[in-house]
Amino acid sequence: MSLALGFDLLLASALLWSAWRALTTVRLDHAVVVFIVFGLLMALAWARLQAPDIGLAEAAIGAGLSGALLLDAYGALRRREAERKAP
């Protein structure tokens, strides 16, 4: 029981820490990557909450699809900024 509680506490602090870093990291691309890590940790949390259905969806959507969307938006932003500066 105490082992499970220890794991829960570790997971909880990892969740809070990654959320905090996603908001405060200076570099935006790092923030997006930390957010993807947060999504994967959420999938673990759902597994701990006996909700494997949500865990599956969170791993595929929260971490995978959202991450791809955010990274793509960040890449588009960078490209456009570079285009604006270059010509």
Partner: peptide, 21 residues
């Protein structure tokens, strides 16, 4: 058992994104 339309649809979408990337 755990599974269903949402998860399956998400995996399909992930496959399309992978092919695009």
């Amino acid at each position: 058992r755990p599974g269903g339309a949402f998860q399956a649809g998400a995996v399909l979408a992930a496959a399309a994104v992978l092919l695009h990337l």
